[in-house]
Amino acid sequence: MKSLEDLKKVREQARQMTGLRGDQEQTKIIVGMGTCGIAAGARETMKAILDELNKRNLTEVTITQTGCLGLCEQEPIVEVEVPGEPRIIYGKISAEKARQIVSKHLVNNNIIGEWVIGRK
């Protein structure tokens, strides 16, 4: 490191590693991980989302899981919550559909209407 600018560059890179532990509000993806969700393939959905985030280097997104919503037949359920906007709930999200949610909803901010089963 030879200058203050070098230090700031290292900081920007390093921040991507610890952003998860910060307090700032981030876009959230919530995957239903009840027994029904797992049976319907929610683990594959989750892995696909994580893989897609990694490929696109989207570090500002938090992924968490939740239990059964009571709509077992709609599993795997994926919820997307962008700060300041209503939460969008998608149903029957396979790994392939999950990738599209990342590219269309998160990156381009286009909600995929036909998969939406609810808003909060």
């Binding site: 203050l4 890179q13 390093a14 921040r15 590693m17």
Partner: peptide, 25 residues
Amino acid sequence: GRINPDSIDEYIANNGYLALGQAVT
């Protein structure tokens, strides 16, 4: 309890060494 103490990168991510950088420059 927020960073890995053995990682200088995690310290820098949290504005580590910025104060030193600003002070000396």
